[in-house]
Amino acid sequence: MTYVNSPVRNGLGLSDLAPRVVQSEIRAMTAECDRIGGVNLAQGVCDTEVPAVVMEGAMRAMRDGHNIYTRMDGIQRLRRAIAGKVAQTHGLEADPEREVMVASGATGAFHAAAMALLNPGDEVLLFEPFYGYHVSTLRSMKVVAVAVPLKEESWALDLDAVRAAITPRTRAMVVNTPSNPAGKVFTRAELEGLAEIATEFDLFVFTDEIYEHFIYGDAEHVSPAMLAGMRERTILMSGFSKTFSVTGWRVGYLVADARWMGAIAYFHDLLYVCAPAPFQHGCADGLEQLGKTFYVRMALEHEEKRGMLVSALAAAGMKPHVPDGAYYILASANGLPGRTAAEKARALLAKTGVASVAGSAFFAPGSGRGEDLLRFCFAKKDEDLQEACRRLGGLGS
């Protein structure tokens, strides 16, 4: 008997997910800004100076041979320092051996936690305007991101809208405080309302607190994990990218109940293996040696930068929403040419050489919201921010 080998034609092509994946508008504007040699206020790269103790700690770690894999949950010294930090700043007791994980950035922490705790088809509430990577991470796992709009202008939370968005498939909510892109700092009263809802419906709360030290005026940072009954259901995520100006190092952390940490650490190991070893040592030096004065000074410096950019945007006729935290400003783009926020951002870049991000990138697709907004980042070196403000000043003349 003769057998004929017939080719199996499965067909080359992208995955079912890939056609719905597009380049981040933030990355796209950064690339266009680089192409023309503009001033990039689009991406939150935070290119201010790295604290000397952090930089020297990483270099010393390299010279001392700390260049191999660490434990999947990070080096012990850093985990202990993180546990000490959350105890001091939040009053939270966390076991550094069972409840703290060093992650490949807060983004890696969220990815691993979502894989460990969510299933395809689950629904997760996010507050709009939201950080696009949170949404994209959920969609990559076929989890449904449900946008709950904050109130226009004030960005106040509507607890009735939160309740109305909950269905039998709701599994969790994501709270980003202070927030990217609005700089919203959720108040204690708002978080207590969310805690009540999370407890009533037995929801996880993923809390991204990467901007926790960028707080201005009378605003106060409150971690949901601090509230009564929230410790076991809160997945607290933060990191060092912003505070130490090391966004490229990819060192973050996650604090969670020991019941969840084993699975979260497993998926983080699977995806990232570990955060870069010498950078973990540098961040540990920073946590151990930089005290409260460092964080207070950093916030004051960024508050000055905020004032500089707010004034420039106002003078340019682009009414800014003054943020209470983080280092972004959403500003009106009504006076710029273009039908969409993306077109307006590109028009601004072409005219002034200043890159921003379309506000629509932070709202649900098809909602029509954010088309009259642009986001600007002010975590820049003074000379670069001053140049951007000078260029924006040409719009008002």
Rank of each mutant, 00 (worst) to 15 (best):
Ala256Ser: 09
Val39Asn: 13
Val148Arg: 00
Leu150Ser: 04
Tyr216Asn: 01
Lys351Gly: 00
Gly38Ala: 03
Leu194Glu: 06
Val86Gln: 02
Val21Trp: 07
Leu336Arg: 09
Pro149Asn: 09
Gly368Lys: 11
Glu387His: 08
Val185Trp: 05
Ser6Arg: 15
Leu227Phe: 12
Phe130Leu: 10
Gly366Asn: 10
Lys381Arg: 15
Ala87Ser: 13
Ser245Gln: 12
Leu395Tyr: 03
Ser238Asp: 09
Ala172Tyr: 03
Ala299Glu: 08
Gly338Thr: 03
Ala265His: 03
Ala165Cys: 05
Arg77Phe: 00
Ala116Glu: 04
Ala61Leu: 00
Gly239Cys: 02
Lys319Cys: 08
Val354Pro: 02
Gln88Val: 10
Arg60Pro: 00
Ala355Cys: 09
Ser6Tyr: 14
Pro120Glu: 08
Thr247Asp: 10
Asn334Met: 15
Pro7Ala: 13
Leu138Glu: 05
Val86Phe: 01
Gly13Glu: 02
Ile264Pro: 02
Leu374Gly: 01
Val146Ser: 10
Met55Val: 03
Arg163Pro: 00
Gly353Cys: 09
Leu290Gln: 10
Thr207Asp: 15
Asp218Tyr: 04
Lys85Cys: 06
Phe206His: 06
Tyr253Lys: 00
Val22Phe: 15
Ser241Met: 14
Leu14His: 11
His302Val: 04
Phe244Gly: 00
Met237Leu: 05
Val21Tyr: 05
His134Asp: 13
Ala28His: 11
Thr70Tyr: 01
Leu373Asp: 09
Met173Asn: 07
Gly282Glu: 00
Thr167Asp: 09
Asp160Met: 10
Ile75Lys: 00
Gly335Lys: 11
Val255Tyr: 01
Phe279Arg: 02
Thr167Lys: 08
Arg27Ile: 14
Val144Gln: 12
Ala350Glu: 14
Cys33Ile: 04
Glu387Leu: 15
Phe376Pro: 02
Val148His: 04
Ala165Ser: 07
Thr293Ser: 14
Lys351Tyr: 08
Val135Gly: 06
Glu128Cys: 11
Thr243Pro: 03
Arg306Thr: 01
Ala113Val: 13
Arg79Asn: 07
Leu12Ala: 14
Glu387Ile: 07
Gln386Leu: 14
Arg63Pro: 00
Thr340Cys: 07
Leu309Tyr: 05
Val174Ala: 01
Phe363Leu: 05
Leu313Val: 02
Ala172Asp: 04
Leu270Val: 10
Glu387Ser: 10
Pro96Asn: 01
Ser245Met: 11
Val50Glu: 09
Ala312His: 01
Val22Asn: 08
Arg297Pro: 04
Leu227Thr: 08
Ala81Trp: 01
Ala195Gln: 06
Gly11Gln: 05
Arg79Pro: 09
Phe127Val: 06
Asp64His: 07
Arg79Val: 08
Asp158Arg: 10
Arg27Val: 13
Gly291Val: 04
Ser332Gln: 07
Leu118Tyr: 03
Ala182Met: 02
Cys274Met: 12
Val162Pro: 06
Val45Phe: 12
Asn334Asp: 15
Val54Met: 03
Met59Ser: 02
Ala106Phe: 06
Ala61Pro: 02
Gly353Thr: 08
Val22Cys: 07
Gln386Trp: 11
Gly193Met: 11
Arg231Ile: 11
Thr199Asn: 12
Ala147Ser: 15
Pro51Thr: 08
Met318Pro: 07
Phe206Thr: 08
Gly335Cys: 07
Lys151Leu: 15
Asn10Ala: 15
Arg27Gly: 07
Asp372Gln: 13
Ala94Asp: 03
Cys389Ala: 13
Gln88His: 15
Val22Leu: 11
Ala350Lys: 14
